[in-house]
Design a binder for these strands. Structure first.
Lengths: 327, 327
DNA sequence: GTGAAAGCGCTAACAC
DNA sequence: GTGTTAGCGCTTTCAC
């Protein structure tokens, strides 16, 4: 790979002038510019990001922290982040934390090292204290999960309202025995969606039964299936289920199918996220759509603005209840 | 963030000595080492990767090229790559190419810039000439898709054999009218799996009917559904389907369900990849398992060996036919 | 065993 | 408008 000096030599100018051409500084004559551009072309020169970073201490790399790449909920958000970032001249580094603090530490150090310019965190299990501390010094944005104390900028939806509307939808269909399959309540979204669920029940005078609330410890299909198995074995079996993610709902659906029960006649089912699978199940899944792609775009824009020193405001996006065959 | 000079100053030594301590060079006395380590600890010093890279021209970053993050087939492979890479002190940069040559160019430049030390490509639509050219100069490994001419090291499975066995399985069950839902044949795996399909049919004296081979142009659920719709509308309708990916098979299953046909009684169905969702469908999907996690691990090991200048051999991994309810 | 000095590739400040 | 110089943080000779 050619260096800036080789280009300078070939063009008969100094390295500084080549640098000016590359960075579109306007203090270069057209004649020189053309000579330099020719040399850059001939030598197939590409500026070394390393040299530039060291000098400017910027890397044009954004860290995106996710718990697991396998979760399709994140895919769309990442698409949005990526498109926006690339359009602004940034690349993204996708970091799977596996909820592992050691991995997190590696990625946190990357920003301290100036190997990355900022972080978009979608990881709910992240070490909150460390993240808040880091956010004092470096540009950090949270997407989906966020800190209620407002110490870190975020993009999210109104989880409580969304859950409330999903459950209200079931109630309006005449459902009276509505179960909740929730994620671990260390997740903010899990706590908020539970509140929405309870709010709807209370509002319509339905009892909140402890045994109809199942909290999973994992996020996979199996957890949803396991949850449904327990719910179906209850003496007073629910006739409708609100699951806080499509993955859990799809697992639940599997278990309902295995037991030869019909959806929605025997059990009505609502999921959350509108992942693409949710339209491939039989029956298709009623779910709550989050504007995931848009959320990704806005998170990236917000982070880049932060990096550039602009003030940014938190964003709460709209959601939408998608009614399909399962209710 | 403290620099190496501040550490040196605090410890009363030169920057060179600090560097020796960090890099475990043995030419440092224990006494000095301890003093330096203390200073590093006190100042919470972290070596700047930028400075180090520029000097050593290594970044300890591996590029992983995938067409789409949304495809669960890649998730497991990536897990394997990531675990292996991190254990060896490398981080990975997940690059979604979207089959877009411009994006590809960005990532190719990163390795020229020494911003990355090597590439694992899983992208079948990658610009082959460019990749081969790059592989002459830089460490590159292909996973799953590969060049038949052997110009680039690879990890893969025997796609033809796997497809052959899947179709033979259908034949042994008495199926005589077996359709193929294939991906775009620009993909090597698609061409190879088609060969396996045709080989099995020939071997058992079954006709290869043009109209029973449907080639999709996309990889999503919808394509599988669309393919099945066409196959079901044929006058001479097939009674079994081999789809070259679970995603396509799940789309096909959806269409079969919509038409109130039963699987496997009316239509038997085999997929490929054993993605986790393939066990959540009703009925569960017979499929071909690839050792995705292992493939990821081996790809990463292979690449790191290449980076270290070692010779590496191509690897063809074993697959396994997973017989479930759909056949 | 340790320090001084050079230099990786680049850009910004300052001359002219 | 362009060249010269210095320095980003680090590692690696080469002295001593």
């Amino acid at each position: 790979m050619a260096t800036i000096h080789e280009v300078a030599q070939k063009a008969g100018v100094s390295a500084a002038t080549v640098s000016r051409v590359i960075n579109n500084r306007n203090t270069v004559s057209d004649k020189t510019r053309i000579r330099v551009e020719q040399a850059i072309h001939d030598l197939e020169y590409e500026p070394s990001v390393l040299g530039r970073n060291l000098r400017n201490s910027e890397s044009r790399l954004l860290l995106v922290l996710i718990p697991s790449i396998s979760n399709p909920f994140y895919s769309e958000i990442i698409n949005g982040i990526e498109d926006t970032a690339i359009a602004q001249g940034y690349n993204i580094l996708l970091c799977e934390t596996d909820s592992n603090p050691d991995r997190e530490a590696i990625y946190f150090n990357m920003i301290r090292n100036r190997l990355a310019d900022g972080i978009i965190s979608m990881d709910p299990t992240v070490n909150k204290e460390k993240l808040i501390e880091l956010a004092n010094t470096y540009p950090i944005v949270q997407c989906s999960e966020y800190e209620k104390d407002g110490s870190i900028s975020f993009v999210t939806i109104d989880n409580e309202l969304a859950a409330y509307q999903a459950v209200r939808h079931l109630i309006k269909l005449g459902q009276k025995k509505i179960a909740l399959i929730n994620s671990d309540e260390k997740f903010l979204y899990a706590r908020e969606r539970r509140q929405g669920y309870e709010k709807a029940l209370r509002e319509f005078g339905l009892p909140i039964k402890h045994e109809w609330i199942y909290i999973t410890d994992q996020l996979g299909f199996q957890s949803g299936q396991q949850a449904m198995r327990v719910l179906l074995n209850l003496d007073d079996r629910p006739t409708a289920v609100f699951a806080v993610s499509d993955i859990l709902a799809i697992g639940a659906l599997k278990e309902i199918n295995i037991n030869d029960l019909r959806v929605p006649q025997d059990i009505a089912l609502v999921g959350f996220d509108k992942i693409s699978f949710s339209n491939m199940t039989h029956p298709t899944l009623t779910t709550v759509a989050q504007p995931m792609y848009k959320m990704g775009c806005l998170s990236a824009t917000m982070l880049i603005n932060k990096i550039r020193g602009k003030r940014v405001d938190n964003i709460v996006m709209d959601h939408e209840l998608i009614i399909r065959e399962s209710t």
